[in-house]
Nucleic acid binder design. Structure first.
Lengths: 178, 178
DNA sequence: ACAATGTATTTCACGAGTAAAACACCTGTT
DNA sequence: AACAGGTGTTTTACTCGTGAAATACATTGT
């Protein structure tokens, strides 16, 4: 059984090797979930490492770019709290990043006139130009990275991931019980 | 056009909303890659957060569990360098983790008799028992998390991710040119 | 044998993220 | 008006990972 149906679609990746090892040690276990979760984690690690390359050229980390991108794509000012929610990071992390990005002249802040607790953050012209300069590179690079999958498979993969993510966000966001 | 073919497979996840925002700002861009890479990253973040729950009950972080798991599934001793490669982390990180895990009595080290630079790390009985106690919980939890996808889709997803990961590891591991 | 080079591991200094406390301010109630 | 409690943001203390230097040892060539 060297070429089963599963082997046709399953590449010779490191996760497959790990799963085989586990099955040898614990033959009864259902290792199905590992083949998805392990691969998602590993793909994320590799993709982030790869994606960081174009960003690093611009002197940005990915979380920094996510923050700038959130401002760019929404098209309006955001408060630190909104930025934290939008970029899925803690408020404290956003505070630090805003400090750095402000010093670099990429974002500006202004206080709210009604509620003096809240701040409004917006891109400077430089910040906006930087995002617009990076984004095409970023997308081109991502296209290259995914080029090994043909368009149909890419579409399938995007759909399945979307379905999974939709469920995860519903469940986990709504308070998943363990 | 409220229910196109794409919308059938694409869940109402946050990445879809982000992509829509980008398309509104930069209508010409091919946002296809974002729908995969963005979702992989977001899924990884949510899954890790979720997975951490069972591990945290055992007082372990995920990198620590990965290290113990590598020892368990290979079934033999590993050197720090091998552990670093196996868990995709830096040597320095492995050194730190080994220090902690040794103090907790979960792993033991022994020097190589031939080459006195290298150390050999193995699980203690406690360490092995801990991994074997956690793993079923872990797999059961992962199954729960993925239960929203029917088995056929799970298989499809695992296959596509395996193909992607296989390519990524070949490319990036072999030195991807930007 | 001895220097030169290479390899395995650890140490160090630092950057980045987090949770929890602190702070500043708002809002509803009495 | 004054206070109690809630919310937005920042600060603090800490942990963890990283890259680069340091360390210790092995190996190769002369």
């Amino acid at each position: 059984m060297t070429a089963s149906k599963a082997d046709m679609t399953t590449g010779p990746d490191t996760v497959a090797a790990v799963v085989r090892q586990w099955q040898a040690v614990h033959p009864g276990f259902d290792t199905g979930p590992m083949e998805i979760i392990g691969r998602v984690n590993r793909c994320a690690a590799l993709l982030q490492q790869a994606e960081d390359a174009p960003l690093r050229r611009a002197g940005l980390t990915r979380p920094e770019f996510d923050l700038l991108g959130a401002l760019r794509r929404t098209g309006h000012e955001l408060t630190p709290g909104e930025l934290a929610r939008e970029t899925f990071s803690s408020g404290a992390a956003v505070t630090k990043r805003l400090k750095q990005l402000t010093e670099r002249g990429l974002v500006e802040r202004r206080g709210d006139t009604r509620d003096r607790r809240v701040a409004h953050v917006r891109l400077t012209d430089d910040g906006r130009a930087l995002v617009d300069a990076i984004l095409p590179d970023q997308l081109a690079y991502e296209t290259t990275v995914l080029s090994s999958l043909d368009p149909e498979r890419r579409h399938e993969l995007a759909g399945l991931l979307g379905a999974l993510l939709g469920q995860l966000e519903g469940r986990l966001g709504g308070g998943l019980r363990v």
